[in-house]
Design a protein around this nucleic acid. Structure first.
Lengths: 147, 147
DNA sequence: TGTTGACCTCAAGTATACATGAGGTTTTAG
DNA sequence: CTAAAACCTCATGTATACTTGAGGTCAACA
């Protein structure tokens, strides 16, 4: 009761499992102090950190990316302005994702109209829609006779 | 050249790898006829089917879900009206996803304003935002002192 | 002080969605 | 007809994000 938190405490209060906290630590997203007996103890700021991780995951951001953002604040507590910067970056990622999905949906609509999937003309065939699959995923689609 | 397609043909024309087609077949999303020599041969309608799978995946729909939709048209060719029904169902999923992400983004915005993450009040802490994680994911978050 | 619940590490398992490679067969082009 | 390209199956590997379990230790309460 020395105002540090055990894993169990953090698990309960943050809503993630103990095993998940172990995992995050192993992956370098969070850190812990240890008692004499080697048990994890956390500063209260861990809750903010874990909340950030949860939020980012909800937004579909991978742990790898989240880690790279959090690494800017290794042990130091994440300040409001840090958070502000991170969240505005994530906002951009979210916007991209939303945009892609919206475009896809609208294409779907136009295809409901045409009922075609006539691969040559169907907007859904457009290989430019990558939807967040980064990297050179050079997909090449061949032509197809109209339906 | 009997107007059926080999896996290689389908791979090239649909833009998915041969191993992926094998995988889809194993998982029951697609089917093939076989030559005397046990090689896969596909009807041209496979291209539409694979296109649908690709589109749905882009929308973030899992193969399991895609399969369940495609199972309504086991071997029969997917007709325009089938496609219309599927795509309108997927449109709804897309809309949900877009909505969740948009809400998350807006909450992010309001949190940029407050800079807080004061877990009790922060809208981002709201455990109702499940963002497509179906099932009873009963997350319980404990309270936290405001920042 | 005892014992029970919480905690530790490390290995292995789970699920998704494939890719890769070995070892062997089939098809096709010249 | 022959050789290369394409194909086959089956096993194993990869990446992400964890969970589960074994075997053992620590801490808090009565």
């Amino acid at each position: 009761m020395d105002n540090t938190l055990s894993v169990g405490d953090v698990a309960q209060r943050s809503g993630v499992a103990v095993s998940t906290l172990h995992y995050y630590e192993e992956k370098g997203l969070i850190k812990s102090l240890r008692t004499q007996g080697n048990q994890r103890r956390y500063h209260r700021s861990i809750l903010r950190r874990v909340a950030i991780i949860r939020i980012a995951k909800q937004a579909g951001i991978s742990l790898r990316i989240i880690k790279s953002h959090l690494e800017k604040f290794p042990s130091r507590e994440v300040s409001p302005s840090d958070w502000q910067q991170m969240s505005s970056e994530w906002r951009a990622m979210l916007n991209n994702r939303i945009l892609s999905l919206t475009q896809l949906r609208d294409k779907l609509d136009s295809c409901i109209g045409c009922g075609c999937l006539s691969l040559r003309d169907c907007p859904l065939r457009n290989p430019e829609d990558k939807l967040g699959e980064e990297g050179p995923g050079a997909r090449f689609l061949e032509e197809e006779k109209p339906c």
